[in-house]
Write a protein that binds this DNA or RNA. Structure first.
Length: 597
DNA sequence: GGTATTTGACCCCAG
DNA sequence: ACTGGGGTCAAATAC
């Protein structure tokens, strides 16, 4: 079976220079794992595991799944691939550090790129961790330059380069407020073990441990593109994939945080259970009591940011954001922007028009609340999740709504994100509205919640990062669509399709799926065996039977794979023609399948 | 000399 | 009451 798959893989090289997908199905049926080979244009192969589950119901992938689904699932030696190796134990001393997207991880296929998925991906949106505001210290980013693509994709990207010539993407790594609030050391170890440098695959092995003053939250930075000084990196790849400029800029110039506020450091402490020193900052604005804690790994990368309080003043006027970056930049007039809307820009989420920290009377945030408020809200965690330090912060400030004695009342900080009412997630063809986001127990990473926008359709999905691998994303579908998949926005049938979403079209069944993507190490995906892909618009109709055939992989899986890869390979063109992409998806898939089948 | 950062000591809280 | 840990202060230091 594997040899067959490998052969298919090789064959597909000629088919698509940019991506090589290999389906290794250990069983003809779907319960098996599939491994996707991702072929970098530079002939670096990366293996993703693809989990296909026949569990039809809300097949949430557990951490155990991830562990079980490590790349070791396959005998990688057999295929001679550079495969991430996850080990079960990891020295806790390893700093939690991102695995920067290495050049080799760059997935250079434009055809499968679903920009909206990318933009709305929890990788770049859902997690407060991701969007956590950069801190006073300059945020060093591993600038991901997407000029690395080769061949056709490179051609295609040239157009984009014209518009984004100085635009580079920085994959966020770590975390903010809620990221590890509830995380015990063991969990941190879990994460560490997936970021262990020595176990890195090509996806991240490019980085070197250059000491830096600056942490490396990845982001889109106008500063970077403009050659601003914040690009001092602690992980300077040897290749030309990353933009590093003016690495020796004095720290002093970094007073202005990327969140737009000015902070004064008033303390630093080594906290128990973490080797990362924690720094304490206060907003320098008079009478503003906002504080934030920033934990940085030993190599200077930010691993956690926790904000406390609300700014009682507008964001200071920035004098740095003057470059030509054409990304939508949200208003900074919000007075509560403890977390930067810069990070919103950074994350390239055009739907995100506000990003703020609020003190709220709700101790926890439920989906209903999300819907009622039309806000995307994620708690920094409930009391159990907050952890002692957060509790402390709750207790030591009466203005927070907590008693001075530290008795927890009803208030706790949480981050509220307002989004537009509708978000397209085109990777699966359906339209989704994000109605919530929260940190759930067992996973410090925020889970975003989406509802299908079709009237009468109650299908939901939520997307979250894996607890121990922030680059792995779990997507869980709940329910079945009672409508056809809408046409892609911008396509001819889009409007008509939107209007007819209420029609009683025989309901295609979307796969309830758990998708786990990882740019650096693993890719897992789960599909329900009772699902079939709806045939609508320009999308090819598939039955899941195709999925079941060894060596095949289904449209949705492929689509998600690609979508996920685009997430991780950091295409960030919000204006990318979606319909065009989808057509490319189809053609690519068809050609791929016809070649392989 | 002014400002920001560092860092040891102290305070407070929870267990 | 004791102890440990997190948060803050403030003098020392650095820029």
């Amino acid at each position: 079976m594997e040899s067959f798959a490998i052969k298919s893989c090789i064959n597909s090289l000629s088919l698509s220079p940019s991506i090589l997908l290999l389906s290794l199905v250990s069983s003809p049926y779907i319960k098996s794992k599939q491994a996707f080979l991702h072929c970098h244009p530079n002939s670096k192969l990366h293996l993703f595991t693809h989990l296909v589950s026949n569990n039809n119901n809300n097949s949430n992938m557990t951490m155990g799944d991830f562990n079980n689904w490590g790349a070791s699932e396959l005998n990688h030696n057999q295929v001679g691939l550079d495969v991430p190796k996850f080990k079960s134990a990891q020295p806790p001393s390893l700093p939690l550090s991102p695995s920067p997207v290495s050049p080799s991880s760059y997935l250079a296929f434009s055809s499968a790129f679903s920009p909206s998925e990318f933009l709305n991906s929890p990788l770049f949106f859902a997690s407060p961790n991701i969007f956590a505001s950069p801190t006073t210290e300059a945020l060093v980013s591993q600038s991901f330059n997407w000029r690395n693509s080769s061949g056709e994709e490179q051609q295609c990207d040239k157009e984009d380069e014209k518009n984004y010539s100085d635009f580079s993407f920085h994959s966020q790594i770590q975390s903010s407020s809620s990221m590890f609030q509830e995380q015990d050391p063991l969990k941190k170890q879990d994460i560490w073990k997936f970021n262990e440098p020595t176990k890195q695959t090509d996806f991240s092995s490019e980085r070197t441990a250059t000491k830096s003053e600056y942490p490396s939250i990845h982001r889109f930075t106008s500063e970077m593109s403009a050659g601003k000084p914040e690009m001092q990196s602690n992980s300077v790849p040897q290749s030309g994939y990353f933009d590093y400029t003016n690495a020796s800029q004095p720290v002093r110039e970094q007073k202005r945080s990327e969140d737009g506020f000015n902070w004064r450091k008033y303390g630093q402490k080594q906290v128990k259970g973490s080797e990362n020193p924690r720094s304490y900052y206060k907003c320098t604005h008079p009478n503003c009591s906002v504080k934030k804690k920033v934990e940085k790994s030993l190599d200077g990368q930010i691993t956690e940011i926790v904000y406390k309080g609300e700014h009682n003043h507008p964001k200071p006027q920035s004098t740095r954001r003057t470059n030509s970056q054409s990304i939508h930049q949200p208003s900074s007039s919000c007075t509560n922007s403890g977390i930067s809307d810069q990070s919103v820009v950074t994350l390239g989420n055009p739907q995100m028009d506000r990003f703020s920290i609020q003190e709220d009377s709700s101790a926890s945030v439920g989906e209903e609340e999300f819907e009622q408020t039309s806000q995307t809200s994620y708690s920094l965690g409930d009391e159990n999740n907050l952890g002692p330090e957060a509790k402390r912060w709750k207790g030591d400030n009466e203005n927070d709504g907590y008693s001075a004695s530290g008795t927890r009342t009803v208030r706790e900080p949480r981050i509220v994100v307002q989004t537009t009412s509708e978000i397209d997630i085109l990777d699966d063809g359906f339209r989704w509205r994000k109605y919530g986001q929260k940190v759930v127990k067992g996973n410090p990473n925020a889970r975003s919640y989406y509802k299908c926008t079709a009237p009468g359709c109650s299908v939901r999905k939520h997307v979250e990062r894996a607890a121990h691998d922030i680059k792995a994303v779990i997507t869980t579908y709940e329910g079945k669509h009672n409508h056809d998949v809408p046409a892609a926005r911008g396509s001819a049938g889009y409007n008509a399709n939107r209007n007819s979403q209420n029609s009683n079209i025989p309901a295609p069944i979307r796969p309830s799926a758990v998708n786990c993507y990882s740019s650096s190490s693993s890719f897992t995906n789960s599909l329900c065996n009772n699902s079939r892909i709806p045939a609508t618009g320009n999308q090819e109709s598939f039955s899941l039977d195709k999925f079941k055939s060894p060596g095949n992989f289904g449209y949705s899986a492929l689509n998600r794979l690609m979508g996920s890869h685009t997430n991780h390979t950091q295409y960030t063109d919000a204006s990318y023609p979606k319909a065009k992409d989808e057509r490319k998806d189809d053609s690519f898939l068809q050609s791929f399948l016809s070649k392989d089948l």
